[in-house]
Design a binder for these strands. Structure first.
Lengths: 214, 214
DNA sequence: ATTATATCGATATATTTATATCGATAAATC
DNA sequence: GATTTATCGATATAAATATATCGATATAAT
C-alpha cells in the first residue's frame, strides 16, 4: 500500500514549522509586515538557510533584501499545517490530563475541535467538563461512526490504552494522538502520534547529564 | 564554551529509548526475562539493526541467539535516561495544564519531583493542588535559589512565558521544560525542551493531509 | 556430537538532513 | 543614476542517521 500521494515533509522540518508560525503570529501582532529568514533564525536560534529551506515547503517565495510578506507566510504555513481546517476529535480518559485538555482553549486555533469525551468512571459519565460532554467509553465506537470523527486523543492509563485505541479504530477514526505511556498497535493505515511526557522529560534530563548538570 | 564532555546522543535515538524502556517494563511485568532487538523492533514497528544501535548507547551488550537480559537492559536504560535519579522541579502556571501536571503521579517514575507551583492569581496563591503548594510567582526566584531547584516547568500563557523563564534563570534553574506556545530566550547554557501541543498536533494533521485524509 | 538457527556486533552503503557557497536582485544609500 | 547591502533561491558539500550485509557465536534441534 502506498500513501505517498503527496511529497512527505521531513520530520525535523515539521517540528520547526509550528515554531515559525507561533513566532510569525507574535511578530504580526507587534505590527511587523515583512520578515526575513535571518530574523526568524535569530529569534529561534537556527540557521537562516535552514529556515529558508523549511519555508520552501509552504511554496511561498520571498523577495531579495526584504524577505517574506508576513501575512502571506502565516496564511501559507497555517494551511500547510492544517491549522486552518477544523477536525473533530474524541478524547478518551477524563482524568487529570484529559480534563486539562478539554479546557485548553487554544486547540481551536490549531484546527482541533474536541466534541466529546469518554470515560469508564460512572462518576464522570454524563457530566460536562468545560462544556464538553463525557460519555460512557462503550459508546465511543458507535458515536465515532455516527459523527464521523477523524481524530482520537488517548489520555487513559497505560493498561487501558490499547482497548481504547481498538475502539477508536473500530469507530473509523483515522488518526490517534496518544498520551498514554505505552505503544499502541493499530492497522498501518492509522496514523499514531505519540506525545508521551516521558519522551520530552528524558530528553531534558539526558541533555542535563551530557552537560554535567546531573 | 564547550559542553560536550560526554558524547552526545543522537536526537532520534533519544526519542526512541523511552519507548523501548516503556515496552521493556511492560514485558518484564508479563514475566519476560530475555528480549532481542527483533522483538523490540517488531513490537514498536522499527528496524532491529536500529534498535541494536540505539541500545549500544546504554553500553549493554547482548548475547547471540537470545538477545538482552531484560533486567540489565531496564536498569541500564533507566540510568541512561536518568529515570533513576530524582530532580527537583518548580512549575509555573497552575492553570488547567499545570494543575493536571501537578496531579500526574507518573513523574516520580521518570525521576521528576515537582516540589512547588507558582501562579500570579491571588485565588491560587497559598492553596494546595494535589499535595503541592502554590506560591506567588514573585517568590519563584528566591525559593529556587534556596531549594536548589534544577528544573523549571512553564505552563503559563504565551505572553507570560518569557517573564517566568527569566525568573527561573535568575533562580539558578538549569533546564526548562516549556509548554507555552512561544519561544523563550535564555542564556545558552540553559537547556530548553519545548513541549508545545501544537507541534504534535501539527505533525498529526500534516500526516493526515499527506495521506489524503483531510 | 553435529547441524541448524536466531541473534549479536562490526563494518559498509545508502539516505536524509544540515550547512556552506554563490550569482541574482530588490531596496537602501550615496 | 551608480553603488552598496541584505536577502533570496539554487547548487554543492558535509554531517548525521538509517539500512544492509556478514562473520562469529550461543542455544536449540537433530
Amino acid at each position: 500500500m502506498n500513501f505517498e500521494h503527496i511529497k512527505q515533509t521531513p520530520e525535523p522540518t515539521l517540528r520547526r514549522l509550528p515554531r515559525y508560525l507561533h513566532l510569525l503570529i507574535d511578530l504580526k501582532a507587534k505590527g511587523v509586515q515583512e520578515v526575513s529568514s535571518t530574523i526568524i533564525a535569530n529569534e529561534l536560534g537556527l540557521d537562516p538557510v535552514q529556515v529558508r529551506k523549511d519555508i520552501e515547503y509552504s511554496s511561498i517565495i520571498g523577495k531579495p533584501r526584504t524577505g517574506y510578506h508576513i501575512d502571506e507566510l502565516i496564511k501559507a504555513l497555517s494551511k500547510f499545517l492544517s491549522w486552518d481546517t477544523v477536525q473533530k476529535a474524541f478524547l478518551a480518559g477524563a482524568g487529570n490530563l484529559g480534563s486539562a485538555m478539554l479546557g485548553y482553549k487554544n486547540f481551536i486555533n490549531y484546527g482541533l475541535h474536541i466534541i466529546a469525551a469518554f470515560d469508564k468512571d460512572p462518576n464522570k459519565i454524563n457530566t460536562i467538563i468545560y462544556d464538553i460532554p463525557v460519555y460512557d467509553i462503550n459508546e465511543l465506537t458507535n458515536m465515532a461512526k455516527a459523527k464521523d470523527v477523524e481524530i482520537g486523543i488517548i489520555t487513559v492509563r497505560a493498561n487501558a490504552a490499547q482497548d481504547v485505541a481498538n475502539r477508536m479504530v473500530d469507530g473509523g477514526i483515522k488518526a490517534i494522538w496518544n498520551f498514554a505511556p505505552v505503544h499502541i498497535k493499530v492497522p498501518k493505515e492509522i496514523i499514531v502520534e505519540n506525545a508521551q511526557l516521558s519522551i520530552g522529560l528524558s530528553f531534558l534530563k539526558r541533555k542535563m547529564f551530557e552537560r554535567n548538570l546531573l
